[in-house]
Every structure is written in structure tokens, then in C-alpha cells.
Nucleic acid binder design. Sequence first.
DNA 1: ATGTGACTTCCAGTCCGTA
DNA 2: GTACGGACTGGAAGTCACA
Lengths: 78, 78
Amino acid sequence: MHSLPQLLGANICALRLQKNLLQDGLALLCGLDRSYMGRIERGEVNITVETLYQIAEALGCEPAPVLPLKNEVISSKS
Amino acid sequence: MHSLPQLLGANICALRLQKNLLQDGLALLCGLDRSYMGRIERGEVNITVETLYQIAEALGCEPAPVLPLKNEVISSKS
DNA sequence: ATGTGACTTCCAGTCCGTA
DNA sequence: GTACGGACTGGAAGTCACA
């Protein structure tokens, strides 16, 4: 069980590697900064849905497969 | 074809009505402000993935069915 | 090729109202 | 019950320099 941004970042990283892309390359496709893409993959930031769609578009898939299931996510509520 | 926030808001609204919830009630379940929930449904704001998960949780479904498909969304790129 | 700190701008999200 | 407005705070977006 990890935080939502961490799981999301791990999924993005895995999908990126499947496409043999570098963080640089993916960031370019998304229209995002290289260093910001790194932070996303490390789960350091909580992205918006628009950013999610940009990434899904660049990865050539729907946003859904990028998202972890609810029960994989550490609940932020007590 | 509408903007992403508009489609997302319409989906949330439809799912909320299926559950016979008011904006008030859904906002409470999500831990969000009532007026902000209204803005979400009207597509006036671009929410984060964490908020998306809060809403999916409150609606009793996964985040995926709340999200529109890429090809339903007006591309923000030219 | 990626991690990180420092930074600015802008919007996610709250709280107060009115109709 | 819901739409809509103004004013506000924290944090997402976005960039750069350096390790």
C-alpha cells in the first residue's frame, strides 16, 4: 500500500519503459518539463486530471489504465 | 465534444443523481465544500487526482467510470 | 539521463454571501 | 437545493541551475 501519487507515478514509469521512452521524451510528448515529469514518477506531486490526460495521450492509452484501483491506495482518511 | 472538466462534471452529476444524493450530501461525503462541488459539476474547475478519488469513493465506484474517454474530450492542443 | 532545491505564477479548494 | 459572486490560502504548474 502506497500513496496515490506514488502508485500513479509507478504506473506511468512502467508504461513509459514499455514504450522505451526516457523521462525527457515523455515529458516532451506531454508538453511538460523534464524535471516535473521526474517528480510525477516519484510520486512527489498531486497532478490534476488535465495533466493525467496529457500523460495518457502521450502514452497512447486511456487514462483509466494509468490509475491505481481504490483498494491499492493508502486511504488519507483515518 | 466538451472540455474535460465539463464532461467530468456531467458524469459526477449523473452518478450523484443515481444515488439520490444532493450536491450538499455528496460534498459532505467527499469532505469538500458544497459550493466547490457545484463548480466541479458545472465544469468550472480542473480537479486533482486526489479529489477524483475522494469523489469516486463517495460515489461508491472506481475512478475510471467517472472519467470520460479521450476521444470525447476537446483536445486542448491545436 | 535523472534527482533536487529554489523560485514564481496561478488555480485548487474554502468561506462568506446573494438570488 | 442550486447557481453564482468575491476574497482568501495552500499547493499545483512550470522553469532553471547544479549535482
